[in-house]
Amino acid sequence: MSRSRARLGVDIALLLIGVCFAAPLLWLVLAAVDPQAGYQTKVPSAPSIINFAAVMTPELLGRPLLNSFLLSAGTALVNVLAAVLAAYPLSRYQSRFNKPFMYTVLFGTSLPVTAIMVPVYGLFVQLQLLDSMAATIFFMATTTLPMAIWMAKNFMDSVPLELEEAAWMDGASSMATLRSIVLPLMGQGLGVVFIFVFIQAWGNFFVPFILLLSTGKQPAAVSIFSFFGQHGAIAYGQLAAFSILYSVPVLVLYAVVSRGMGNSFAMSGAMKG
């Protein structure tokens, strides 16, 4: 068999797999522009943006998206801050404490988050933190913190120590060199951690579903679920339009990160340890 024929076979096999993966998403796109959408995938007879117009109201889309943004940005900020501060001594000073700590943190990444939601709910009730945006942000930041500490430490390890030592000689404190030397040099890495946490928080349904009770505080992930429950039987098109508007920000962010990383795997830093 010639090489080019073998390659054609490979291409066809891959394309078939690709079509299978794209098929469930096709419905989402077609239903969004179809005023008479059902569960069937069909090209709309009279495509229109009426579904988008119907869901683009402040209370249906505006408020939930704003809440999603506050939750995700807050989570990413708390997360990156805590991760960078923790990574600095772990990366810069040799200590017997480092290795056990890093492995304990790694162990923490393996905790199934859905399993701790029942106890977290109980804990939040006891501490009267239920329905608090701030507490939800801190909890969400903590669930991704172990992974973020690993990533931050790996990025920091790649910033050479010599630059800092020169500044220390001149009398700069370690926190000053962290801010003026290390952080600018690992800026891209930090951006990756921030966006990675932001995307996870933006897509998270279960945590806010359990911890945030009032509709005014719920992010889009939760409001779309109640929308589905109330109107799902009729308004498939609107549901699809809402889903697309809610998904676009993370799709864009992911494209930015994966391009910036030159197609290498965003999480490989964390995986290789």
Partner: peptide
């Protein structure tokens, strides 16, 4: 891109898409 799209989408949206796909009238 097609494979990653299913993974990057918010989980609730992926779940809706899967629900529609496996529905009796679905794709």
């Amino acid at each position: 891109t097609a494979v990653v799209a299913a993974w990057v989408l918010p989980e609730i949206v992926a779940a809706f898409a899967a629900y529609a796909y496996f529905n009796r009238d679905g794709t």
